[in-house]
């Protein structure tokens, strides 16, 4: 525990104010090591995505301490922060601008990070995520869901970040495409030495990609456990056990 890539202490996130205030995350604390892949699971409304959004700076109302890649986070994110931390969103149909080609999306991302010779970098970046050069000038509506998600991953990788925040990156995709994207994420992590935080409702997906997993319920982290413990169903918290049970039951055929 020398210098974790991500260190979250006592994070509270809320929406609204006064009587309309609803607490999405309460007193969440966890740390993610450099190069580790950390999963957050929970059901809808458990606040798992909100944690990612708070780290990324998309939710302004939070309190607590967040240190990411050696930088203590305040209310505003610096440009340097976005060079180190990037995010992949859940729905590839909603995360790409409908009127922009792949080329435009990627070159703008690179331009914003002040990279040079964009024209030669784009084909390399596309190759990294398994997209051939023929996709370069297509609009999102000319791409399938899996191809769109590859573009979204390429956009996140445009500035060679150290940390990727993955918000259910495969939940909108078919299982066979999900397998392709999960394999891609595995490869990218190995090749680029990335640190992941992945949010998902699917224990199978999180168990595949992550080493440690936090289980969330109603805004609180109820348990953090190793994936090995999870595989052997050695959860101490009753909610985690219930979650494991239903997940295993629905994935095991009759």
């Amino acid at each position: 525990m020398t210098n974790p890539a991500i260190d979250i202490q006592d994070l509270d996130v809320w929406f609204g104010a006064g009587r309309g205030r609803s607490d999405a995350v309460r007193q969440a604390s966890f740390a993610v090591e450099q190069g580790e892949s950390f999963g957050i699971v929970g059901e809808s409304g458990s606040g798992k995505s909100t944690i990612l959004r708070a780290i990324a700076g998309l939710v302004p109302t939070w309190s607590g301490n967040m240190t990411v890649a050696g930088e203590a986070l305040g209310p505003q994110r610096s440009k340097a922060f976005f060079r180190k931390v990037q995010m992949v969103f859940q729905d590839p149909y909603a995360s790409l601008h409908p009127r922009q080609t792949v080329d435009r999306v990627l070159s703008e991302a690179m331009g914003l990070h002040g990279l040079k010779d964009i024209d030669s970098r784009i084909p390399r970046l596309m190759e990294d995520v398994g997209l051939g050069p023929s996709f370069r000038f297509r609009f999102p509506h000319q791409l399938s869901g899996g191809q769109r998600q590859r573009v979204a991953i390429a956009r996140a990788l445009a500035c060679s970040p150290q940390i990727l925040l993955l918000d259910e990156p495969t939940s909108a995709l078919d299982v066979s495409v999900q397998a392709e994207i999960l394999n891609l994420l595995t490869d990218l992590r190995r090749d680029h030495g990335l640190t992941y935080i992945m949010v998902s409702h699917d224990l199978g997906v999180v168990g595949h990609l992550c080493e440690r997993i936090a289980v969330m319920k109603q805004g609180r982290i109820v348990e953090v456990l190793d994936v090995e413990m999870m595989r052997h169903l050695e959860a101490s918290d009753p909610y985690t056990r219930q979650l494991l049970d239903s997940s295993i039951q629905s994935s095991r055929s009759a």
């Binding site: 990324a56 700076g57 998309l58 440009k79 976005f82 060079r83 990037q86 995010m87 969103f89 859940q90 729905d91 909603a94 995360s95 790409l96 601008h97 409908p98 703008e108 991302a109 914003l112 990070h113 979204a152 956009r155 445009a158 500035c159």
Partner: peptide, 10 residues
């Protein structure tokens, strides 16, 4: 999400 994404590019 695509506006969020471009915000995250700085």
């Amino acid at each position: 999400d695509y506006i969020h994404a471009i915000r995250l590019q700085g």
